[in-house]
Amino acid sequence: MSRALALVALLTLAGCAARSSDGYRRSLAAGDRAKSAGRYDEAAAAYAEAARAASKERDRDEGAFLEAATLAQGGRHQEAMAAYDRLIAASPRGERSERAVYERALLEIEHGDAAAGWAALERALLTLPGAGTGRRALHKLVEHAEAEAPGGGGHRWLDAHRATLAKTELDEDVRYLIAKALEAEGKAAEARAAYVACAEAHPYPFGSLTDDSWWNAAALADKQGDAAAAVTYLQRLLAPREVATMKQGSYERPRYAAAQYRLAELYRDRLADPLRARREFHVLYERHTTSPLRDDALWNEALLARQAGDRQATCDVARELVRALPESRYAGCASQLCPGQSDSPKAPACRDYLRAALSP
């Protein structure tokens, strides 16, 4: 008999939980519909009801967070801050609480006591650096410090907190921002070293700013007259380029093609090595198959071949321009590059400034 009663009690509890879960889902869906329609007050009320109906702590926190965020979206900023406070107090270790701390601080900055909000944002960053909004908060705090003390305030803030943030996932951003600050202050040698250190500390594929660091280091090296170092930095940027399997192409990052093009330019303009420049321009055309720089690369390769008196290579590149990139502006100059080669009928007529580049 006792076993039967226990089974009845268990089934009753299960039914209650199911009804609670159904209520949560219905209220959440109602909130989503109202928010999509711009009815933020209605949406906030529905999310609050979802939080009350939730049988799981995680669902309750989700409803509470959405209530606060929707109140803020609807312009009810003080009520939104109060809602964030309730969520943080009720679930200090919940999945949404770290984000709530950040959002609460940002609302305070924009719609309450700004000084208190900045202090709260800084505390959040230093104690909860791994939260999803940590990176955004870091940049906002640095910008604020610079605005408060132009000409180095942001840099000083970074230096003051560098040791603490070095142990977190924000270390790369801190290093990069310090390098940018040094560059802005005109300390080119220190900035260059800082960019290199950032790239080496957070190499591909783990760093999100690796390519930017190598790129900026190369630009500074070039300005300092150290073209050889600039080439090395660009080669290190390009070295980890991956090729996907199953003929799906390459994992292209935004700096790849530009870095390859700049590498060729350095060999041509700084290191007086036109043959190597020709090879590097062709690498861009051959490997970076989605880049809009491909026709520029072929054109420059052809010009260098022409200047070297290599008629066969010049004509080979002219033919490739017409064949592979028939709508390129350069394909309308193929006959100018190689007598006997027809221009592409799909290309515009050869422009005067391109004809000028062909002059001896």
Rank of each mutant, 00 (worst) to 15 (best):
L238Q: 07
A264M: 08
A30N: 10
A105Y: 01
R329D: 09
Y256L: 13
A229K: 11
R86W: 05
S344E: 06
A80F: 05
H139R: 15
V317K: 01
S91L: 05
E79M: 06
K247V: 14
A115Q: 14
R96Q: 14
D171V: 03
G152P: 02
A305L: 07
A229Y: 00
E252Y: 15
R276L: 09
A83Y: 03
T133V: 10
W215F: 12
R136L: 13
L125H: 04
R52W: 06
G207M: 03
D212I: 00
R60F: 02
L354N: 05
H155S: 09
E327P: 01
R311I: 06
M1V: 15
L128Y: 11
G38Y: 08
R278Y: 09
S208A: 12
G207S: 09
A227W: 06
Y233K: 00
V101H: 14
C350E: 05
E62V: 05
S359A: 15
D222I: 01
L13V: 10
D61A: 11
R3E: 15
L141S: 03
A308V: 02
Y256H: 15
P360D: 13
A119D: 13
R323F: 10
P92G: 08
G117S: 06
R26M: 12
L170A: 03
R329Y: 01
E57S: 14
R3T: 14
I109W: 04
V142I: 10
R162K: 13
R287Q: 15
A228R: 15
E148G: 05
I88Y: 06
A277F: 02
A277E: 00
A221E: 00
A219G: 07
E108M: 13
V317N: 02
W215Q: 00
P240L: 09
E146L: 04
A53P: 00
A259R: 00
A9M: 13
G154L: 02
R255W: 11
S250G: 11
L238E: 02
P292E: 14
R241W: 09
V101I: 14
P348T: 08
G74M: 07
G134A: 06
A147D: 11
L293W: 07
T70M: 07
P326K: 03
R279N: 13
L337V: 08
A29H: 12
G94P: 05
L66Q: 14
P360A: 15
R253M: 12
R76P: 03
P274V: 03
R270G: 02
H155T: 09
A51H: 01
G31E: 06
R270E: 13
L293P: 02
D41Y: 09
A6I: 13
R136V: 12
A147W: 04
E57H: 11
R319Y: 04
Y102M: 10
L209W: 05
